[in-house]
Structure formats: C-alpha cells, structure tokens
Write a protein that binds this DNA or RNA. Structure first.
Lengths: 246, 246
DNA sequence: CGGGACCTTGAGGCCTCTCAAACTTTGTGG
DNA sequence: CCACAAAGTTTGAGAGGCCTCAAGGTCCCG
C-alpha cells in the first residue's frame, strides 16, 4: 500500500472505492495511462488496481509468464532485461516514474522480458480486464496505449543508437546522461557495475575502470555506493571532446 | 503498379475501385495489416492506397518528416536506421514482406527513423486517414495495430540481445541467421559490408574479414555480390562452438 | 579503357577482455 | 559492538580482438 496520507478531496465527486482515492492522490496519475480516465469511471469499475512495493533486485514479472496485468510505475526505476541464446543477461532499457511496463499483457501475450526493480519501487498493477472495461467507456484509452507503445519503441531505438555503439567510454558517458533523466533531486541512481556491464555490453572491470576515471575527471561523485552526483557541464564537455576524436 | 495479373475473382463481391482488385490479389494481404479488413469495406473507402516501387538505396521516408502514411511491404527488405548524436548511422532493424513500417504516422507523429530500401522493394502506402476510416468499420484494426507495435518492440529487443552484444564473429553469425528469415528461396540477401558494419557496430574491414573467413569455413557461398547461400548446419555448428568457448 | 565504388588483405597499435589479487562495503552472528 | 564471511568494487598485468591506416583487387559503368 502507498503511504496513504488522507488529503481531503475538494471538487471531486464522492468516490466509493478506497483504491480510487489513492489514484486521485497519486502524484504521477496525470502522466500515466489512467490520467485520461475519469476518476468517476475508475471508481465504478469492477476489477481492482493494487499497489505493489519492490526492493532492489525483486522481480516484477518474468519473461514467458502469462501476462495478466500491465504496471504503472509510481516511483523508482525498473530494468527490462532478457537472456540471450548464449545465456547472457542483457538490460534492454529502463523505466521510470509514470512509465507503463508489461503492455504486452493487454494483448493476451506472455511477457517479453524480465522486469526487475533497480531501486525501491512502487507500482500500480493494472489487470487486463480493467483496461478493457475502461476502454469501453473511454475511447481515448487505446490511443494512449498506442502512443506508449510507440514511445517504448523510440526508447529502444535511442538505447540502441546511443548506448550500444561506439567506444566503451562514450557509451558510459551516454549512460550517465540517460541516468539524469531518472533523477530525483540532484542525485541519480548509480547502477551496480554488474548492471552497467549488462546495459553497455562490457565487462564489470571495464565499467569499474571507466567510473573511476570519470570520478577522477570530476564528471561525477558518489556520495554512496548506489547514488551519484553528475556534473552536467563536465559530462557535456567529456561527450563533446569524445565526439571530436572519433 | 504491381504486376497486375488479372486473376478472376470468384466468390468475391464486385469491386469497383481498381486498387481494391490489386489488394484482393496481393500475396501478402492475409498476413498484412489490412488482412483483417473486408475487401468490400476497403472498396468503399475514399482514401486511396498506392503502390510504390523502390530500388536499393532509395528512401521510403525520413526521420523527422511528418508521418502521413504507414507502409506495408509487399516484397523486398527495408532497413530502419538512425543517425546517432555523434553523426554515425546505425541500422536499427530490418523489415520484410507483410511487415508494417512507419506506424508512428498513425499517431500523427513524425517518423522516428529513416526507412531505406535494401533490395528492390514494393510497398503499399496506407494514408493515415484510410486507417482511421477503416478502423471505424473494423474494430479489430486497432488491436491488430497494437500487436504490430508489440512485435516491432520484440524485434528491437531481439536485435539488441542477439546482434548488439558479444564478439564480432558471433554477431556476424547471428546476422546470417537473421537474414535467413527474409530469404526468398534458397538465396538470402547479403548486405553490403557498409550495411553490415552499421548493423553490427564494427568496421567495414572487420565485417569483410569475417565474411571471408566464414566463406572459407563453408558457412556461406556468394553466387553474386548481393546474395548468399547459407548452409544452415554449418552455421548452427559455428554458433554452437562459439557459445562453448564464450 | 579509365575511373569510381566496393571489397579484400596486411601490419601495427590500441582498447577491451581475461585472470588475479587486494580492497571496501554489507550483512550476520557471536 | 566487533569479527567474520560474502558480495561487490577496484586495480594491475598480460593477451588478444578489433580498429586504423594503407595498398591492391574486383566489378560496374560511362
């Protein structure tokens, strides 16, 4: 359950379902899939949304498992990963607050990847039947879903062009830049070296060497093991000088 | 125009629009987006489908251009590519017969990548308004579109795990395997070394060396510069022994 | 026949991997 | 609270894979 601070609802109609109240107060709702849905409609629906909390390393769902629900991220970062035919784990992309993951469940398909929490994570579970029921009342919902599919595809394409190609140092710099997109405050989540290596297709040792080097260069500081402060101008300067030499 | 062999339409109702007749005779229609659409509905629609032919290297659409139509591939292979911020071209994935490309146009967005013909290509141009008009009559159409988005995402994810990671030789073997998916007969399209290097993130020289080596090993033959015969058992054996040593 | 685009091959060097060891952090139990 | 184990990180040295630079070959087309 999310931390249910009971804030009075002013202009909203009376809501009967306690979960709907939580939705009404949700900080990411207006950016999320159900942001287009009337709270009143949501309140009338039979299937229930449930809130789930995960700790780093915990799995949200697994590839090949029957997809019964999609999930909206309320906070934290989730990684989507796959195991290659050679048996190596590869991180495909990250999802952050207000992102929707596991959309393939809406098509009755099995999940296409593993979803694992990178940080403490809060998600809302949206069962397939809920979305279908709401879609009947809200014709915009399928359109919003399609836009989310396209934006997942854009993310995948960007990941591919920027994080999968070029020298190791350059890929690491691009990763740091990407991590700032998921920042909460001035600190960003700093992946483990293992995670970095699975995202950037390099060894743990190379990832470690690069992070150490960039720390020495003043591109980032690590107040603790799982957080970094990234100095944007130094990062940008490093990226620029990197492009020149290439 | 596609080669319009006039085959009599038996049980079908009379079709008035000459393009609809071409659709009726299209070899890939039942696998394509409009496979779920009644020919009679298609015949009544105001917006027109048009057929386009492209030669290798010709552009179907460009990234950032306003997306006015999606395209169903009737034959040939199209590559989707992007230019990274460093200015390097990267091939993201391939599309083959019955695939739908440029779906982002259905959302009123600009195209997310460049689409370029790799071989001789025939496509059907499906304007946005056509899809919207048909969707009103055919509620299955949006669902089919969503499935295609998901499958594009699956392709992107598979490309990422299998073609973007590991040793150069392994990536090349995986590419040859992928090319067999687009085979017409026993010959597969063999990309130029330039294209290979943009798909696998390696230099032209490395791609050339690997192809030469695999030819010597009997994994493939090249009857001409743009085609190969791939010997599946040798390819599989190479992939297996590759995984063992890793 | 000459030029251009593409492919192939070689030599040398750098980047990244492999293997190994030491260090740091985290968690557990005394 | 400390000791210890386990996991994760850092650093080094050496090897090897891939890149760079360069030259020569092949095919196609004017």
């Amino acid at each position: 359950m999310p931390p249910a601070q009971v804030i009075p609802l002013h202009a909203e109609p009376a809501l009967f379902n306690p979960q709907t109240r939580i939705c009404a107060e949700c900080g990411v709702r207006k950016f999320a899939l159900l942001g287009v849905v009337d709270l009143a409609d949501l309140d009338r629906v039979h299937t229930h949304i449930s809130s789930i909390k995960l700790s780093p390393g915990q799995s949200l769902y697994s590839a090949q498992a029957p997809g019964l629900a999609a999930f909206t991220l309320r906070s934290g970062i989730v990684r989507l990963e796959r195991t290659s035919e050679r048996g190596e784990r590869r991180i495909l992309r990250l999802a952050g607050a207000s992102d929707l993951v596991g959309m393939e469940a809406m098509l009755g398909q099995t999940y296409a990847a593993d979803a694992v929490a990178c940080t403490d994570v809060e998600v809302c579970r949206l069962p397939r039947s809920l979305i279908e029921e709401l879609a009947r009342q809200q014709p915009e919902l399928p359109l919003n879903l399609m836009k989310r599919w396209q934006s997942a595809l854009d993310d995948a394409d960007e990941w591919m062009t920027e994080l999968c190609a070029g020298a190791a140092r350059h890929r690491m710099l691009r990763l740091l830049l990407k991590l700032t997109e998921y920042a909460e405050g001035d600190r960003v989540w700093l992946p483990s070296r293992q995670e970095m290596s699975a995202m950037l297709d390099m060894t743990i040792e190379t990832a470690s060497r690069l992070v150490s080097q960039l720390k020495r260069e003043g591109v980032l500081d690590t107040p603790d093991q799982r957080h970094a402060v990234i100095h944007n101008d130094a990062l940008m300067a490093a990226l620029r000088s990197d492009s020149l030499s290439a």
